[in-house]
Nucleic acid binder design. Structure first.
Lengths: 138, 138
DNA sequence: TATTGTTATACTCTATAACTATA
DNA sequence: TATAGTTATAGAGTATAACAATA
């Protein structure tokens, strides 16, 4: 009986499709591409080396260079030197960047809206299932 | 107590990230981009009008033109005329296209691999939760 | 006149290879 | 010699606007 598995696979596909589309729209509302919004999401209070970002985003360093250049041109991030290693450039989100990032988060209603239809117990259930599916490496 | 909601949102984000990356890789194994594989996935035995594909993929018609052109150049789909309306061009998957699509499906182990770690009961649970989250419009 | 699909164009994402500066 | 990041380049995804063919 693989019918259940097929149904589930389809549901997951549909969910991911809707999720991705919603994130695209949210980024667009804030005037960003999804990739740019994603990069901003990987920045914190402190600056971060570009190489670290490339690793986390699982993309080439030259890609990060371009993304950061576009964000920097719009004043959303800044490149700051690393005090210990002058080869390294660190990326720092500006206050304008933090504003835009907040706008993306606000526009990205999908999780709260969709997951909001679940009861507290169902949310716990889903969280447990996802933890099992994602495995220990997360 | 929004901690649960935050945890869940993060888990969903991680899951989608892993899912998307896995689909990218699967398409790449078969020599396709994710968008091309996705288009093939929307074809069945019968040919389909390009406009329908644009609607389902939620993208512009000109985008479908380009995707189909690339797939057609590689012999994976063909454009066939519509017998009733000569404005319409229908897209038909070739047997080579069906082979490649099968290769993508085989390479896309993510759902069966990850979801395979769940028991039958857990799968039913997850399916139910997704049905509720996706809503009636699915 | 409205619709289907294409063309021209432009911007972004992404990777590879060659390069610069620093370690 | 190895590493961090950049530059040059190329292919693909995507959209907008102008267009051709057909309804």
């Amino acid at each position: 009986m693989t019918e259940l598995a097929d149904t589930l696979a389809r549901q997951v596909w549909d969910f991911v499709f809707a999720y991705d589309a919603a994130y695209d729209r949210a980024a667009q509302v804030a005037g960003l591409s999804a990739a740019q919004a994603c990069l901003l999401e990987h920045l914190s209070e402190e600056s971060r080396p570009m190489g670290e970002l490339a690793l986390e985003l699982r993309c080439d360093a030259s890609n990060v260079t371009q993304l950061v250049s576009r964000l920097e041109a719009r004043g959303l991030v800044a490149r700051v030197p690393d005090p210990d290693d002058r080869r390294i450039k660190r990326v720092l989100i500006t206050s304008a960047g933090a504003d835009v990032r907040r706008a993306v988060r606000v526009a990205f209603e999908f999780p709260s809206e969709r997951l909001g239809s679940l009861t507290d117990q169902e949310r716990r259930q889903l969280s447990g299932l996802l933890a099992k599916v994602l495995g220990p490496a997360s």
